[in-house]
Write a protein that binds this DNA or RNA. Structure first.
Lengths: 320, 320
DNA sequence: CTGTTAGCGCATTCAG
DNA sequence: CTGAATGCGCTAACAG
């Protein structure tokens, strides 16, 4: 038997020895069936290939592993990863789900809520009070970004390359950015606004478009780092110096951002802490000590000054 | 009932309707128990944060998803991810395992073989005929690399920054590289040899060390792209121009390598094809139509010429 | 302190 | 053609 106080030590040892000799291993499936818990949680990620996610997934994995849970990956490629994850939740293959890249979309939220199962949103969320979520202060981060560009460096022609409007992250960062501008009585020049999915390609494409304008922007605020790196790439490879002629500001602080040959100035999300909080919330829900409903956990963001943001040429010594 | 030919259509429809009304979902755990198959496979990855792995995992996920399997992630962090994976294999939580980052180490191989369970090695392998494996032609790739540097560009002082000697990839690439040099009657200058784990940091550190030498190398062959990018980073940020003063050659062709501001010259592994082959082999083994034992599937590598390899200064116009 | 039994939710028998 | 019974491998709640 296993771990029962009532049994003689001698017997226990005999049994353990026998088990080892036969290399007996309890069948996890049968255990799951009877315990009504698989100790597996699903993480749904839209694209693990986006460098933001590996570090998030790694943190989540570490946290969950520490509490005896394993991670199943629901990665988006063509197929609807959310529907898939949902199916596996209702079939009880997974004990809970952590969504890392939710889109704002309602029929889905209702389906999910109907299951009444353990679920948590990290990073992105859907604006529904029924669910737990842990996010960074994206609005605040956007405002920091605007303040940096405007007050500290004196940029005037500022462009933004935003993420998809269906992503809460994109929306909130943009809101914070625009909010700050309005607060000081300025507004974003809509002709310098561009958006697209959170990919390097939208950074490249939008930046090229912006650089081909008659009057170029002197700074670009990007919806996330991968867009920013795309923009940086487009700028550098078309010969415009960063930050000499163009400042670039990202969001997330993915590992590549800190490479010294790149040095992307960006707004950091505390990914590890967020992952930890998310794991704790989800495990609470799974193990029943769950609070009521819809807790929100917001983490502060932090401006990371590196080298891709500088003075606009107008303010530099020796500029015309 | 579900999918039985013997039942009247009318009855079937009634049942289906009822099931939908009650939103009945079969319990996956119970199904697994009775079918003796969970339709989950584990992938063990040493570090998902290394940009090579997300694309491999993504490909694997796509392939396995297409055959109805889900992926559980065994990522290495501190804990021994292999032992963990092995436990879950013997407890039948997963139907099989794909190892993407095996180290050459034998007690482990025997344990694994003793289970006699479906297992495949991709990318790296342990040299044991009992297991299936799918790998790139790393020896050939190493030789290509050497030929490029020596014959096509005329480099003479060539350094190598290799990966850990316990990784088959590092060992094979290095073997191919050295082999080519010997074939043409040259040898690697051992004072220009450096190695470490497959991380950006070893690239940075080793490159700094190499650049601080009195006589610098004119080219570096790196064990993989992330090392190469570390080396590139170290070079650029300490003011040595690439490829002007130093050529850098990587291995893998990870996505970042092709960013136009970087343009890393490298040896490509056909990751998607390899993932596909691995998934097919593993599924065959799981579903019983398994061949005898120990198949090996080798994929050719391809030299990708970009911008980090050039002529050594000695051979350039205008050089002293 | 032990050995026995029931049943987790299904699929696959086997009788009806 | 269909309902009822058996057991997958385990744990928990029983009697012995």
């Amino acid at each position: 038997l296993s771990g029962d106080q009532r049994v003689k030590d001698e017997t226990r040892l005999r049994v353990i020895a026998a088990a080892k000799k036969l290399s007996y291993t309890p069948n996890a499936t049968a255990q799951s069936l009877i315990r009504r818990r698989s100790n597996i949680v699903g993480v749904v990620v839209s694209d693990i290939t986006n460098p933001f996610y590996p570090v998030l997934v790694e943190s989540l994995d570490r946290m969950f592993a520490g509490s005896g849970y394993r991670l199943i990956l629901f990665n988006g490629h063509g197929t609807d990863e959310r529907a898939d994850a949902l199916r596996h939740l209702s079939s009880r293959l997974v004990d809970g789900l952590v969504f890392t890249s939710a889109l704002l979309d309602y029929p889905f939220a209702d389906e999910l809520a109907a299951l009444n199962a353990p679920v948590v949103f990290v990073n992105r969320y859907i604006d529904d009070p029924r669910f737990d979520r842990v996010v960074a202060d994206n609005v605040g981060g956007g405002a920091h970004a605007a303040r940096l560009l405007v007050e500290q460096f004196g940029h005037e022609r500022i462009a933004v390359i935003s993420g998809p409007s269906t992503a809460s992250t994109a929306r909130d960062r943009e809101r914070g950015f625009r909010g700050f501008l309005e607060e000081i009585g300025r507004a974003l020049d809509e002709s310098l606004y561009c958006s697209g999915p959170f990919t390097r390609d939208t950074g490249v494409t939008c930046c090229q478009k912006l650089l081909s304008r008659e009057e170029r922007p002197s700074a670009i605020f990007c919806g996330n780092d991968i867009i920013a790196l795309g923009a940086w790439d487009a700028a550098v490879s078309s010969g415009v110096s960063v930050p000499g002629e163009l400042s670039i500001l990202g969001f997330d602080d993915i590992p590549i951002a800190s490479w010294s040959a790149i040095g992307l100035t960006t707004v950091r999300q505390p990914v590890a802490s967020m992952a930890q909080a998310a794991a704790e919330m989800l495990i609470e829900r799974i193990e029943g000590s769950a609070a009521s409903s819809g807790r929100t956990n917001v983490f502060p963001t932090e401006l990371i000054l590196r080298r891709t943001v500088g003075l606009p040429s107008r303010l530099r010594v020796g500029a015309s």
